[in-house]
């Protein structure tokens, strides 16, 4: 994990409204859906002081991408064994922009 910003403790508010996120999420099957939903629920209960340290999410800064503000880091977050999400911090929100199964044939 790198480039983790240090800001005051604040509950993480999830923004999952991106059509790119929804399109894949709504097509997830049984175990994948359960795992992704579980990870999102776990993130929702965390605050910003410990979300990056949460085990299993494997935060990875994607340095070649920048959030719309041109500065904030975009992170890859492991939401299940097979599925990653891309997200960035926007104030108290964690905004997921897209959801990416490792093998796209199932949900691509």
């Amino acid at each position: 994990m790198s480039h983790v910003p240090k800001r005051a403790a604040q509950r993480v508010r999830l923004d999952l409204n991106s059509p790119e996120f929804r399109e894949v999420f709504l097509r997830l099957e049984g175990a994948d859906l359960a795992q992704v939903a579980g990870s999102l629920d776990r993130i929702r209960k965390l605050d910003w002081s410990n979300v990056y340290a949460s085990k299993g999410l494997r935060w990875e800064a994607i340095d070649h991408l920048k959030a719309p503000d041109g500065q904030s880091t975009v992170y890859s977050v492991r939401l299940s064994q097979k599925i990653r999400g891309l997200a960035f911090r926007d104030g108290e929100f964690l905004r997921f922009i897209s959801l990416h199964p490792d093998h796209d044939s199932a949900y691509g």
Binding site: R13, L14, D15, S18, L26, R44, L65, P68, G91, I97
Partner: peptide, 27 residues
Amino acid sequence: RIERGLAWAAATPAKETDVADVVARAK
């Protein structure tokens, strides 16, 4: 997908999602 997601985020203000509601819709 990433480009479209970033473009959407640039044009849309952040809004909290009810995770339980989205999961229920998927089910």
